[in-house]
Design a binder for these strands. Structure first.
Lengths: 149, 149
DNA sequence: CACAAAATCATACTTTGGTATGAAGGGAAA
DNA sequence: TTTCCCTTCATACCAAAGTATGATTTTGTG
């Protein structure tokens, strides 16, 4: 966490310096502000989106729990006990849900902001714990065990 | 937690100091510009974060919709009409059910006493008709459409 | 019967999935 | 601080899935 914050800080610093540099160069030479302002806007919008998604990623997990409660009304109860018994981690469960949603590994990776390899690792461990060989089997078993709706 | 806050504060402080330093040493003029640029940056960062949050919220909505579909899964009625409408053949439907059961193409081939290639052909046609690319998606869609329990 | 729709299979490829193994870093608890 | 678990990622390799195309055989229906 320390390093993350540090890296964020440094990144922001570098960004600012770059902007300053741009400001100096373009402003002095061309006096064209439109491009400059536009660039800043786009850049910081992207930074903002990125930061927003990154920061809210963990909140999505909470959302998932809320969904679980919602489903409860339609007689689905997340079998958290079994989840612990099988030592299925939070991330693995997340991947499981997305697999059940019909997503490919690549799509899951994009959605969770991790690499394809990471998704493969998660799903592979998941399959071990569920004692299955394929994702379709995993979905079947997980549904029957009440691990997913 | 205190440590994190402290480090974060120090990082920000260093950043600010760096910026001030740069400001005075390299870019000596146009403090008005600085303020302007800073305002834009902050503004669009916030816009970005807001956009990011918006995007995240839409995902929640999708999840809720999936939950809604769940309710109908208990009493299942085969939607034969739709089956004909999509011109899904008997064999294709059979394959679909086995796919949903988590079987591999090879296992399906063995169970139906046909070759692996035949199963591939059937499933491929099926995916076309269901407008999906993968078996997991096919299962999801077929269930929501009432083509399989 | 004739004709169309289904069902079967093959060959050849491309894309995903899944396994094995090793490794690095963060977080939480002892 | 050290240890353990979780998460992340990489590389390499093999298996399964899916696509494209073309061909032959059944089968049901007018």
């Amino acid at each position: 966490m320390k390093k993350k914050i540090l890296i964020y800080g440094i990144a922001l610093g570098l960004l600012t310096i770059t902007l300053k540099f741009l400001e100096y160069k373009i402003f002095i030479k061309d006096h064209v502000m439109d491009f400059y302002v536009g660039a800043i806007a786009v850049l910081f919008t992207m930074v903002g989106i990125w930061a927003g998604l990154k920061l809210t990623r963990k909140k999505e997990v909470i959302v998932v729990k809320e969904v679980a409660v919602l489903v409860d009304r339609n007689n689905f109860v997340l079998n958290e006990n079994l989840l612990k018994q099988l030592s299925i981690s939070k991330r693995e469960h997340e991947v499981l849900e997305l697999i059940a949603g019909g997503l490919s590994n690549q799509e899951i990776a994009d959605k969770l902001f991790v690499s394809l390899n990471t998704v493969k690792t998660h799903s592979s461990r998941l399959f071990e714990k569920l004692e299955v060989n394929r994702r379709t089997q995993a979905v079947e078993k997980a549904k029957s065990l009440g691990l997913i709706p």
